[in-house]
Structures are given as C-alpha cells and as structure tokens.
C-alpha cells in the first residue's frame, strides 16, 4: 500500500538513548544534559503557573512535545489546540501559559484549523513556519475524527499529537472510544452484571493513520520522555501529515496518586498494553522492545477505575485485559528475545 502523495520523503532521524536513564524525568541535576528537557536553556513552551492538576500526564506530554518542536524549528512554530483539559488549564483569560503562537477554535476541528494555518503559511511563502495540532483522545479520536482523517488524506503539512488519557477528562471523566474495557468512568459505572466499560472492538487511531499512508506515525508514552522527544524530533524532520499518540495517565480520572503518573504509565508500557512503534507510509518501521517486568494486574491494581476487576466474579475482566496485552506482545513482537 502506498500513499497517494509522496512528495515529502521521510528524512533519517536517529532515536537515541531511549532505555537508559528514563526513570528520571527532566533531570536538570545531571552534569550533562542527555535530553532537551535536561538542558537548562530549554524553551519551556508551556510555562509554569498553568492550572493542570497535580501529576497531569497531558501537561507533561505537551511540554515535552512542544518544547522539542520549538527546538527543531528554531521557534518557527504555531500550535493549534482542540478544546479539552490542555486548552482550559493553559489559557484562562487573561492568562496564557504558552510561549508560542497558539490558537484554540473548537473541540472537533483542530486538524482542519491546522490545515488552514499550514495552507495559509504556504501561500504566504513562509514554509519555515511549522504547524502542530494537539488534543486529547476525545477531541481527536471521537469528535475530531472526520477532520483528522481529512487532514491525513490531503497530506497536510501538520503534525497532530494526541494525548491519550482514555476518557473525556475535562467534562468529568466520561467514556471515550479510547476507554479500555472494564474501566470505570462517569458514564460506565462499575455496577450491574458487567461493571465498567463494555469490551468493544477497540479503535487504534495510529493504525487508522497508517491506513491513510501518511509519511509518519508513532506512539509514545510519557514514561519514556526521551523516546517521545526523539519521535517529535523525527516527525518535525518530515513534511506532510504526521501523527503521534502519547499515552498520558490522568490521576483524577484514573484514580491514581499524583506522584504515580510516570509509574503507572511505565506499568502500562511494560505489561504490553501500550506498544510503542513507528510507521512510515503505512508500514511499521520500528518497535520499542519491552522487558515485561510488570503484569497487567499490577498496572490495573494501581488505579481506582479498575478496582472492581479484582472483586470475586469479575476475574473474566482481568483475563480479557491480559488477553489484549498478550495479543499486543504477539502482534508487535514486543518482548526482547534473549
């Protein structure tokens, strides 16, 4: 399968240093910076003082992603934001936490607005100005899906970043198409015969993006910020439509301790539930191997949204989620062979 538009060949970009040292986030105490976040002179796209909850995975993901993009573009960057937590907590009038030109329009149209911004700069001859659209899973994979698919299919020169925390958190934790089976949300309460969210077929938007044959697709996880940074860097080295989905825990919505955001994200990564991979023009080009040091049970146990899974009679739910992790491990060949 080939993309219809191949005007923008993916440039080579190395992903380095992704496994060592990732247990320290934004470590500015180290003698030498081994990532942008470790560098004292980093740009700080999303400034301090914004109103995200303690331990917000999305805020962390957005800062790492946009800082990297600012670095790669030498500041020639415009950010389009979908409605959602990230928008609300960063821009309560008359304040803004963004140190970059930034526009919020609506919940479901970030991809189309970004398409317009990109075309506008192209026609003005300012192709050095790059465009990022970003949103949560609700704004991206549900209500924004039509505009997102259009942006992909037209191969607009936009990087779309989805911060996936698996529910509509801004409106008070309702189910989205990314909410996993059994998870408690305000609209999938853990009551009745099948507590929590029903097990549907799932909806992998990275795979949907790949089906459009766009130049670059990647998944990332906030537990591995260097990997996220490298993937944003690579995405910014490419022209055309690109998509990165970042797994970002939500302490409020998941019922986890604010201090455990990275820990929970790492558990998800290491049990096989959130495979990290890259794809170019519809073909997977790289997969991050895992050492399955965590069990699905341990990952679920650290979150209140799955508490009912451990009650007697709900064993099948735990088994069903384990089966998803096992399927991922098989499909992506996630485990390092010894």
């Amino acid at each position: 399968m080939q993309s219809q538009i191949l005007h923008f060949p993916a440039k080579e970009a190395m992903i380095i240093g992704q496994q060592t040292g990732d247990r320290t986030i934004s470590n500015r105490l180290a003698d030498t910076a081994d990532s942008l976040q470790g560098a004292a002179e980093r740009s700080n796209a999303l400034d301090s003082g914004h109103r995200a909850c303690q331990g917000c995975g999305e805020a962390l993901g957005a800062r790492h992603a946009i800082d990297t993009a600012l670095d790669t573009t030498d500041g020639e960057l415009v950010v389009v934001n979908a409605t959602g937590c990230l928008e609300v907590f960063s821009t309560p009038y008359p304040q803004s936490a963004w140190r970059t030109p930034w526009i919020h329009s609506l919940f479901g149209n970030a991809a189309a607005v970004a398409s317009g911004v990109a075309q506008s700069f192209r026609i003005q001859g300012k192709e050095n100005v790059r465009v990022i659209a970003q949103g949560g899973d609700g704004g991206t994979t549900d209500i924004g899906m039509g505009c997102l698919s259009g942006m992909f299919e037209r191969n607009e020169d936009v990087l779309y970043i989805c911060y996936n925390n698996e529910a509509y958190m801004n409106t008070g934790v309702q189910r989205s198409s990314q909410t996993p089976g059994a998870a408690r949300t305000a609209t999938t309460m853990p009551v009745g015969e099948h507590p929590g969210n029903r097990f549907g077929t799932g909806k992998s938007v990275p795979k949907i993006a790949m089906a459009h044959g766009i130049p670059y697709v990647a998944t990332a996880n906030i537990a591995n910020p260097r990997d996220l940074e490298a993937k944003v860097r690579k995405a910014m080295s490419i022209r055309g439509a690109r998509y990165i989905e970042v797994f970002v825990p939500c302490p409020l919505g998941w019922g986890t301790a604010s201090c455990d955001t990275i820990k929970v994200a790492r558990q998800a990564l290491n049990c096989g539930l959130t495979p990290l991979y890259e794809a170019e023009y519809g073909e997977i080009t790289a997969v991050n191997k895992i050492a399955p040091s965590e069990t699905v049970g341990a990952y679920l146990k650290s979150q209140r949204r799955f508490a009912h899974v451990f009650k007697r009679g709900n064993e099948h739910q735990l088994e069903a989620i384990q089966a998803i992790a096992d399927a991922n491990i098989r499909a992506f060949d996630l485990v390092e062979s010894k």
């Binding site: 189309a112 398409s115 317009g116 990109a118 506008s120 026609i123 505009c147 259009g150």
Partner: peptide, 27 residues
C-alpha cells in the same frame, strides 16, 4: 497565489477558514 482546499465537510471547510484567516491570509 491561492490555495484551494477540498475539505472533508462544511465543518472542516469553515474550520480551515478559521486557521487560514488567523494565520493572516484573505480567506
């Protein structure tokens, strides 16, 4: 010097106008 965008819906068409106009182009 004009970009003609074939959009995926009217919602997308007006949204692209928003982005384009906000970035300083006559739309």
């Amino acid at each position: 010097d004009c970009s003609f965008m074939n959009m995926e819906s009217e919602f997308g068409a007006m949204s692209a106008c928003i982005g384009s106009s906000a970035a300083g182009s006559r739309t």
